[in-house]
Design a protein around this nucleic acid. Sequence first.
DNA 1: GCGACAG
DNA 2: ATCTTGTCGC
Length: 221
Amino acid sequence: MRQIPPGISGLTVDQMRRIQAELAPRVRVEDALGTVRWIAGVDVAYTETHAIGAAVLLDAETLEVAQEATAIRPLETDYEPGLLSFRELPAALDALAQLPEPDLVFCDGNGLAHPRRFGLACHLGVLTDLPTLGVAKSRYLGQHDVIAEPRGSWRPVLDAGDIVAHALRTQDGVRWVYVSPGHRISLDTATTWALRTATEARIPQPTRLADHLANRTRRER
DNA sequence: GCGACAG
DNA sequence: ATCTTGTCGC
């Protein structure tokens, strides 16, 4: 029952939403991860016709890059709010599969902060059964109060009565990001890792370096 | 009915 | 996401 990777082509919007609803119950929002020694960052860049996936493996302690991998896939679906994972996962999974198994995966987008509580990070987590978290650069849904200016300040993001993410300021005075659990991790732990790895910029290093690799690969092609 | 809407 | 260089501001 591979709910995604090969041939997504034929799926309708309704079918994709149905798959999300079916897989959502498999998401585990409690901490079910061991010692985090290796972190992977995954991202996807696009051309007119293809998706270029990039995965980077970093030492959780030093955040130094240990290994990189890329993959390219023909685009199979247009972007549709709520269905981002169906567009990004094929290339993202192909790239990730080329690396040694990480202890935690950072995704570029949301996890629980999704209408059906099954964003990109949840989907990738359930399919691989790896601990995952999502970091989104802009708001998708939910409401939150003003975030204080100092790095590390955060406020819960509420949607339909659920706390689905934390709006977290990762650097003094820069715009905040939205952190949410993907799979096998709690919101608090996800927030801690996001802040801990946002050492050089607003975006945590795993996601940031994967983004760089994806774009570098796209330009050199 | 109207507006919002990860990447 | 992508199309694109320099430039205004701290």
